[in-house]
């Protein structure tokens, strides 16, 4: 049983690390802001789920498990909210997706 749990937690850790990395590559390589956000936001939920889940399995039932799960809970609540808020702000400001090149009308820097 312990070996199964161990193997499962290692698999989750490595899988989570893989997703985190994929998200990073996507955020760097995707052509425009909304696709970049798409890449990073989805993996920002799945990556922590797997990585922190793996850590929770490693720590057994203890205070650490509770803390790891609390971290996971807060990340899962705040991450999508931050993504939503950012995407909303960008679309209200008139940023358009789907173009490879930025047009002159796109707000490059804040128009404050």
């Amino acid at each position: 049983m312990a070996i199964v749990l161990d193997a499962l937690s290692w698999a989750m850790l490595v899988g989570g690390a893989l997703f985190v990395l994929i998200g990073g590559i996507g955020a760097l390589r995707m052509p425009d802001f909304f696709t970049r956000m798409h890449a990073s936001s989805l993996t920002d939920s799945l990556g922590p789920m797997l990585v922190l889940g793996g850590l929770a399995l490693q720590s057994g039932w203890s205070l650490e498990t509770v803390k790891v799960l609390a971290i996971l809970l807060f990340l899962l609540i705040t991450g999508p909210t931050a993504t939503y808020a950012l995407g909303h702000a960008a679309s209200v400001a008139g940023l358009k997706g789907g173009t490879r090149e930025y047009r002159a009308s796109d707000p490059r820097e804040p128009r404050a």
Binding site: L21, G24, L86, E109
Partner: peptide, 28 residues
Amino acid sequence: AIVMTMCLALTRALLGPTVYDRVLAVNM
């Protein structure tokens, strides 16, 4: 893997090009 991803995010924050990309990179 996480440190590598941090490098990628930092690159995105440095490249921009829009201000929203930078905020996204900081969030990541």
